[in-house]
Write a protein that binds this DNA or RNA. Structure first.
Lengths: 151, 151
DNA sequence: GCCGGAATCCGAATTTCCTTCGGTCGAAGG
DNA sequence: CCTTCGACCGAAGGAAATTCGGATTCCGGC
């Protein structure tokens, strides 16, 4: 993980479809070298994959919320089952497993407030292991597009 | 946004570097048609971009935390300034602007607990507009790789 | 200092892919 | 029935990805 690798990661984070040729040119190395470097980064798991970033609004998901959730008992199997089943739900964008008073933060999306309400009634109120949850609307979600190794 | 567009989005979310040819073959359409469709999706802002997904561990960021932050006064300019400056920090992955008792959730990363502590002392304790923040360690962050339009 | 092995890098050649463009088909409307 | 428009397709030229053999550098060991 030298500075060439860092530069590759940096550029591919900003544009995941950057052509190998263009990337090589930016770095001042041969395309074949660049290709091998990039492939190694992928193979070593440093680059985990490539994803198209999609507009939530275009996907008919204009409302976002964070659901702070507590479950009991806090057993390994209960936690794992909750994580897996919740991640599967199409309304769920991501799940943070937390230390502290809340066991999970669940980032959910819906097309409007009514659907959000219905989703929570269907998926959270019903479950026996969920002993409490607080829902907070998200006005805006900003993401840092550049993640470099911390020095 | 018909079912062909949905399928394109779906596949490119799972693999953002899928070749146009392979994508066309999956959908049973001609490569030229597929290319135009994909370009239109990009142009209409439905596909916002392509990103390489990078391992936080490989980037020397093994510790994650969520910082629930309150600022005052809650004026438009103060909020905007906070969002922008915080998003710029390399330790910050994303910022949720919230309704409710917490004004922001800031997802931060650091190489270890000591660096996290130092980061918070440097960047949060100092700021005058921050009137309070609670930090919770994140054990695990799961992401749903598939986001389709809600029906 | 010298040698050998391994790792890295490069450049040319081959294969694959992207991209453009002209043409076909089908639906909607006159 | 005819026209028009939009969507789609297929061929072709150009560009990019990928492979591979050879050159170079780096690093221990002697």
């Amino acid at each position: 993980m030298d500075e060439v690798d860092s530069a590759i990661v940096h550029h591919l984070q900003k544009d995941g479809r950057l052509s190998n040729r263009a990337l090589a040119e930016k770095l001042g190395i041969a395309p074949s070298t660049c290709l091998e470097r990039t492939r190694l980064l992928r193979q070593r798991g440093i680059i985990e994959g490539y994803r198209a970033q999609v507009s939530l609004r275009a996907l008919n998901r204009s409302v976002q919320a964070m659901v702070a959730t507590q479950i009991r008992p806090l057993r390994r199997d209960v936690v794992a089952a909750f994580e897996e089943s919740v991640t599967r739900l199409p309304e769920v964008v991501s799940v943070y497993t937390m230390a502290g008073s809340d066991d999970f933060l669940v980032h959910v999306t819906a097309q409007d407030i009514d659907h959000l309400h219905a989703f929570l009634l269907d998926q959270f109120t019903n479950r026996r292991e969920i002993v409490g949850f607080r829902t907070s609307i998200i006005y805006q979600h900003l993401t840092n597009p550049v993640l470099d190794p911390l020095p």
